[in-house]
Design a protein around this nucleic acid. Sequence first.
DNA 1: AAAGAATGTCTAGCACTGCTAGGATCGGCT
DNA 2: AGCCGATCCTAGCAGTGCTAGACATTCTTT
Lengths: 191, 191
Amino acid sequence: MSATRERRERERAQRHQMIITAARELAEAEGWEAVTTRRLAERVEYSQPVLYSHFNGKDAIVGAVALDGFVEMAGDLGRARRSAPEPARALRAVCAAYLRFATERPALYQAMFILPTNLKFASVDTPAPLRACFDEFVNCLRPDNERRELFAEVIWSALHGIAVLSESGRIPPAGQEERIDLLVAGVAAGG
Amino acid sequence: MSATRERRERERAQRHQMIITAARELAEAEGWEAVTTRRLAERVEYSQPVLYSHFNGKDAIVGAVALDGFVEMAGDLGRARRSAPEPARALRAVCAAYLRFATERPALYQAMFILPTNLKFASVDTPAPLRACFDEFVNCLRPDNERRELFAEVIWSALHGIAVLSESGRIPPAGQEERIDLLVAGVAAGG
DNA sequence: AAAGAATGTCTAGCACTGCTAGGATCGGCT
DNA sequence: AGCCGATCCTAGCAGTGCTAGACATTCTTT
């Protein structure tokens, strides 16, 4: 009785993850507009309504994918920061890693920052991976700077702007390196 | 014969504009997700298919609204730049005007930068108002700076990032002024 | 002025979306 | 064995963007 119950829950958790990865793979392969509940259900080999027994709706599924994305991004940014030889170059490495993430995983990035999701930002119940990403920027700045958070916000905003404007062709795709250089130079001088 | 033809074309142009303003008003009042072809048609007091005799599809309608938005934004930015007492403060005024536009007309801003449209950016056939907005940033920078365009791109990106991240609650809504200050300080120092 | 051509508009419908109520089916428990 | 509850699916709703074909209405030509 308890054994079967555990197996049930295990299978259910498995299926939960299967839905998330299916949504992510489908989005990365054909874009989010191709991710419909029907195709998703077909891919998981269940009928549509089971999706709604796991998630409150499509937005929640996108949110789950986005959360996975934040976990990965936090890893990427952390690796970039720690691999920098000196603190002065850490910020540049993190910025480059950020843009790299955005351009190499556009669908994931969309889920995290553009599509409507049910994720809470800048509040008490902000998921940890989300906060971790932000902190990677903060940790690149000198601890005696009491406006570190403000700096991090502006840097993050600039990177996000660069990512989305170049992705949608509103600024030329080339010249990302120069933009990063300019950004970190401005921060270094402005602080 | 020729007179009636002219009248026809005049009425057609009127209806064309009526569709655009109806879409804009509806979006500003209830958000873009409420702008459907049916509601739009009802509001213009014509049936759905007439929309498609004016525009290639919904994206084209959004694009037309966005184009109007760029015209207005170019005006706002130009006024802000010219009203600045000295060139050094012009950039700050333009940045503030940009963020003001984004927060006061969120629906219009969405059409211009977030929703899928058929507008061409950074190419030969980029509409003039679009280019004009970009140039307002460029014209705030010293003419002897041969990397003005790069600077403008980064400034614009940062502003766009600030606008969209604060709109979606990903960074706190307060503190916009400080962010602008930091941005223009960084540019001034980095250049 | 009457017949034909062309233009404009609308009704009805397609294929699709996210989402859900209700019934069928299968498991474990008494 | 028989019940009962959890699980899952079929079928359908209301809505989306978009379009083919019928219907007028207007203009042109005889």
